[in-house]
Design a binder for these strands. Structure first.
Lengths: 190, 190
DNA sequence: CCGAGGCGTTCGTCAAGCTGAACGCTGAGA
DNA sequence: TCTCAGCGTTCAGCTTGACGAACGCCTCGG
């Protein structure tokens, strides 16, 4: 990339500059006011919003508190808007067992932190899932049927409406106890 | 808090110190190696892992890249392990309409970025939800019944298994078209 | 018409983060 | 046993971020 343009994605400092200004505007606050609340010099904030400067964590943290947004909102870029996936549509997870289907409903790009699946499981075969990347957590809400799932050592049984979460970074199982078992799976990558 | 102890939660610099060391160990890398990959002096990294120092964003970003973890992993604290909430249990969302109940299944602390709800809606009343904090997105998967939901201007109708997401930071509605309508709601705060 | 108050930017000064070199330490290998 | 390579820590220096004051700009209100 040449110089000033097309850098609208990569550099963290530019993302911070954008985020800082966006969040401040949305809060309807003046630069002066935010600087005062955060306890940083307004000159510092001015430079940060201009993309100049390389804030320390303490400075950025203080600004996050003053703007009342989680820290990570300031260092990452926003996303799209509306999506619908009808039952039966959407990309289907490749599965070793025909009795297990997982449909990817929502996924962020590589550095995103949660995937949303609709899974259907039929009795007769236990799906042994290999561990995913470290730190991931799986959240399961059963819609219909009964599902045994969880870490291999300590699986749990969920009925419709039941919810559980467990580590996804160690071996775990999915097994239907009734035909037509469906569940919503939120795979969270921290 | 007195001095060194019990500070295991608040200060961002301590969180960073922990995270940096944890991620480095899990990657099986030496401090020297990580510093080299990230292009920062190993003295800098040493101080950061010791909790001394207040890194700039560029430095921390480089370390995140070198460790191959998302930036936010370094500035936030890990979580618990396993949880189950049986149908009917769990804290219930206060609602203006008796015909709408939302049960909080999973939530992080204030700075967390997604809440997981099980909602049940009965026909007869439309729930007008006030906008939540900016940037939030709502993901809905219908378990049973039929649900009309979405932004006030453009609501959509979902059948069992259908999925949709829409901005949660503008007015939106939930309305059941059948008795016994239930859905899983992932409220994502970016 | 013009002074007051707020806004965001720019400039010198000072403290603090980042650096590279030197240090003590441990373990493998001749 | 001695050596050497690699580890993580500590120490002066230079660079740079954060600060406060002064500046130009705009909008009210007398």
């Amino acid at each position: 990339m040449s110089d000033e343009e097309a850098r609208s994605s990569s550099a963290p400092l530019d993302i911070i500059a954008e985020s800082l200004q966006r969040e401040r505007r949305r809060a309807g606050l003046s630069l002066t006011e935010v600087a005062k609340r955060a306890g940083v010099a307004k000159s510092t904030l001015s430079q940060l919003e201009a993309g100049t400067g390389n804030p320390s964590v303490e400075t950025l943290w203080a600004l996050g508190v003053a703007l009342d947004v989680p820290f990570s909102r300031l260092v990452e870029r926003p996303g799209p808007r509306v999506q619908i996936i009808r039952a039966g549509e959407g990309p289907v997870l490749p599965s070793d067992h025909a009795r297990f289907t997982g449909t990817l409903l929502s996924s962020g790009r590589p550095n995103t932190r949660r995937d949303l699946y609709l899974v259907t499981v039929e009795p007769g075969a236990t799906r042994h899932a290999e561990p995913h990347i470290a730190g991931s957590i799986e959240h399961v809400v059963v819609s219909t049927g009964n599902l045994r799932c969880g870490p291999c050592q300590e699986p749990i049984v969920l009925a419709p409406g039941d919810y559980a979460n467990f580590p996804g970074d160690e071996p775990h199982v999915y097994e239907a106890l009734e035909p037509g078992t469906t569940a919503v799976l939120v795979m969270e990558h921290i």
